[in-house]
Amino acid sequence: MTDFSDIYYASSDGRLPLYARDYGLPQQGSLQGIPQNGPAILCLHGLTRNSADFHDLAMHLKGRYRVICADQRGRGRSQWDPDAINYQPLIYAADMVRLLDYLSLDRVIVIGTSMGGLMAMILGTMARTRLVAVVMNDVGPELDPAGLARIASYTGKTPPAANWAQAAELAKLTNGVAFPDYGPDDWVAFARRLYTENAEGVPVLAYDPAISGGLKADTQTPVVPPDLWAMWDALAGLPILAIRGALSDLLSARTLEKMAQRHDGLKTVTVPNRGHAPMLDEPEAIAAIDAFLAEPRVSA
């Protein structure tokens, strides 16, 4: 028996088969007060990542919630898009609405890392009535240019790996600043999430290099609606938890403070010794997510 089942469905434009992991329905019986008909959790990954990023968190939540972890088009087991202009958060968000329709899910808690958090804000305008709550992982309505430049420096440009040891070294090279306490075993595990294995047993990055087409050529910023603060303000009334890595170069402490000023009741937590972005397996992140999900407005 596997930890999750496979979901295959059509993209919002009907052209691509997309994939998601389904960690199953809540178990019967006592679930810490969480009703059986409570909201599902939809996990949305970052720019170059995929559904595997959320495995540890999903296993922690499994049995209490139905957890769905999606591979966006061009990542993981979802098909690559022959038209790179479609690699942008607005279209990804439309794909997620299609996934919710396919699964007949009317109430979800969205957990979004980096680009996934931008998608959560977009879903707040596309499908607001379906959102019960949002967890924003190291992203906000204002993106630090330093972090954007770092991400753009390797997206679609990472050299090929000859073996898994080299894949781990490359993962460390591009992400080491965010995880300064990781050891060799951690980087192997990280690489196993970031890469897949081809028929010859060689690791290859689990994303289409063309996803960099979703970055504006002039500024290397994501193609998203221009006024993200307006989208943030539109989430007023929704319970939101904002998680920040203490070393983050994408979400500044100042932006997090501004987010709290403009969203009454925002819950925040800063994860020590983490940059962009926490893996959400850190004790501080797990504790904050558990407490947030236990709030009556979120779990009902």
Results as ranks from 00 to 15, higher is better:
195 Y>G: 05
195 Y>S: 08
195 Y>I: 07
199 A>N: 13
199 A>Q: 13
199 A>F: 09
199 A>T: 14
200 E>M: 09
200 E>C: 03
202 V>P: 03
202 V>I: 15
206 A>D: 05
207 Y>S: 05
210 A>F: 08
211 I>Y: 08
212 S>H: 14
214 G>C: 13
214 G>P: 12
215 L>K: 01
215 L>F: 01
216 K>S: 06
217 A>S: 03
220 Q>S: 15
220 Q>T: 12
222 P>W: 03
222 P>I: 06
223 V>I: 02
224 V>N: 08
224 V>Q: 03
224 V>D: 03
226 P>A: 13
227 D>I: 11
229 W>F: 14
230 A>E: 14
233 D>C: 06
235 L>S: 08
238 L>P: 02
240 I>D: 09
241 L>R: 09
241 L>E: 13
245 G>T: 11
245 G>L: 11
245 G>P: 03
247 L>I: 14
248 S>Q: 10
248 S>P: 02
249 D>F: 06
251 L>Q: 04
252 S>K: 12
256 L>D: 01
257 E>Q: 15
257 E>K: 15
257 E>N: 15
259 M>T: 04
259 M>N: 00
261 Q>E: 09
261 Q>R: 02
262 R>A: 04
263 H>K: 08
267 K>S: 13
267 K>C: 12
268 T>E: 00
269 V>Y: 00
270 T>L: 11
272 P>I: 08
273 N>D: 09
275 G>E: 10
275 G>N: 08
275 G>R: 10
276 H>D: 00
279 M>I: 15
279 M>W: 07
284 E>T: 13
287 A>W: 06
288 A>W: 01
288 A>C: 01
288 A>H: 01
288 A>E: 01
